[in-house]
Design a protein around this nucleic acid. Structure first.
Lengths: 357, 357
DNA sequence: TTGAAAGCGGTACCAA
DNA sequence: TTGGTACCGCTTTCAA
């Protein structure tokens, strides 16, 4: 097989479409074009553009001059094909319109860049829409996957079967050893409850997140558990959808439920806590925190706004993203590494939305 | 050049590393593997996986069975190399931690998917960090670029030179005909000012965005211009950074500036308007809107929260994203199409943060 | 309808 | 240090 190489054998073997178009205006410059202009071999061009390859200074000079002249940019696709490394990592994420995930994505992107990786974004309308995109993830030969969504064991197996490392973000798979980075929800919830109890609160209500949120369920479970340890039983739990409206609705529900209004609303995330505060103030005329303490989870931007000044558990998103990429890239380099789970602690933000002891 | 094809010529020409490892456990299945198992040629496999290629029903059946058995997934990288189409579009975006851009990204992603494209994400810490990533954009042979950041004429030229279509999102390049989708800032600002004036407001103050925000500057310019038409001169303008704190600080500055406090604060985006409202209430004890009307731009999620109920101009982000992708994909298919600018109108959201006439 | 073969634009091994 | 060459895994003519 003879490749087109210089203009020497030009047009002998079936000249493709328009040679003019190829050379002058059309087609992007390739390493062959650079080689021809520099008067060296194509492999030399490739070598010159690698950091640690052997090439004389003179050759480097000639090649880089030719590359510059042609506006040459190496083709990452072609490189990926032969090196079997796409430098792409898939980020599976949903709820980009929430307040929490955009920050996650932003940090993931920053750290991916610092590892020389690009992010192939899979923003799902709902966490459950994974099957549709999983095939795409595999087709693009990504180096790794960061999943900020739930994956079924089958879905995980499909990725695993291709030897693509996966790191879960704030999620994991029960009974399956997987790589994951989480914020310790249990600890945070326990601290909040303990401090609230110490301040004298005895009637609690919980506004949970959607059932399919592992993180949310954990927060709720830990809250209930700690309350029971403190001798408080039968804490009412209502379910919300992590959004502002369901926080407000949740409070109304809680109040309808019990004989007496709760003294504390523990919300499974900040946005619901904010909705809860607004409902308390505007619908019920409650003072927060005098008549109702409200706490949330996450520590999103608006939680510090002066209308709310939420008492919440802030997730160390930056450090979590950093850990996620570290975990992932370690396994890209060395696929034999065993699964690892890293749990970082959240930080309590003492706002004014709750009375703490 | 003889390719490994069936096991017929197995290992004759330098058998690569470990054949066992390749076949049984290691390497992902390729179309050759499928072909061998199905007992057909590799090109037949390729054809069977194309929608409109000629292949008998029997062949299709055999191939798809073999593909399923091997867990075969076509390699998008290899396909891209030969088809010169990556099905990747680069999205250049910054400020992912703002309230506005995540929604943009979310909509862009949804519409990209519906065009069969994937998003290669370039989330920049600052709008000005483009040069670092532009090279990456080009290397990945993206089909097109959506730029929600500013690009210099040189940067645009570099992309243009590779014949990669670009669509700007809420931005454009003065004196350069480019594709762009914008929300009409001028119209929105004029309507707001007119209505505010009609309600009897006469003393205005403006909290502008950062200087390098084209959109923000346009909002401010249109505001001032309309005020002048209405006979109101010398409106004080202070500069903010689009964030909550600078909205609050902006109000304080405005008040320090004039002899009398303004009756209206026109803020260049919603988040600053929210900061402004909080400063008015908590620092100055103002009632909003009785003592101070506050308006913003964008219509982000929290603008409807009951603590704020912002009067603002909501951008039709979904339709803008849809238009951006339409514009882009049209030009991917037909590069000869001339540049086009599409301007959509915003919608006034009449909250309770301002008195309108 | 089917298979052989020529690339797409690189990387990497080899001998010179 | 350099050039020749064999791929990476697919699509796409071109004959059969």
């Amino acid at each position: 097989m003879v490749r087109r190489k210089a203009s020497s054998s030009k047009g002998v073997k079936k000249p493709r479409v328009k040679l003019v178009d190829e050379v002058s205006s059309g087609r992007r410059a390739t390493s062959y074009d650079v080689a021809r202009l520099a008067g060296v071999s194509q492999s030399a061009v490739s070598r010159c553009l690698q950091p640690g390859a052997s090439a004389s200074a003179k050759m480097r000079e000639r090649v880089s001059r030719a590359a510059l002249e042609l506006g040459y940019t190496p083709n990452a696709i072609a490189r990926s094909l032969i090196t079997r490394r796409s430098n792409l990592i898939a980020v599976l994420i949903s709820n980009l319109t929430s307040l929490y995930y955009p920050e996650v994505l932003s940090e993931l992107s920053a750290h991916a860049t610092s590892h020389g990786e690009r992010i192939l974004l899979f923003a799902l309308p709902h966490e459950s829409d994974i099957d549709d995109v999983l095939d795409q993830v595999l087709q693009y030969q990504v180096d790794g996957v960061i999943a900020a969504v739930r994956l079924s064991p089958q879905q995980l197996a499909a990725i695993d079967h291709r030897r693509i490392p996966v790191v879960f973000f704030n999620r994991y798979l029960r009974d399956h050893p997987v790589n994951s980075v989480c914020c310790d929800q249990v600890d945070g919830a326990r601290i909040l409850v303990t401090r609230l109890h110490k301040a004298g609160h005895r009637r609690f209500g919980v506004i949970a997140g959607p059932k399919d949120s592992v993180v949310g369920e954990e927060r709720v479970r830990a809250t209930i558990e700690r309350l029971q340890e403190l001798g408080i039983k039968d804490t009412p739990v209502v379910r919300g959808g992590y959004d502002y409206e369901s926080g407000a609705a949740g409070l109304h529900e809680l109040i309808k439920l019990g004989k007496r209004a709760p003294q504390v609303a523990v919300c499974a995330n900040d946005v619901m806590a904010i909705g809860c505060i607004d409902a308390a103030r505007f619908d019920l005329g409650f003072n927060v925190p005098e008549q109702l303490s409200v706490v949330g989870f996450d520590g999103v931007g608006p939680s510090t706004w002066r209308s709310y000044q939420l008492t919440t558990i802030r997730q160390p998103i930056r450090r979590m993203a950093e850990a996620a990429l570290m975990l992932l890239m370690d396994r890209v380099e060395n696929p034999k590494l065993p699964p690892e789970k890293r749990v970082l602690s959240g930080q309590i933000m003492e706002g004014t939305s709750a009375r703490l002891g």
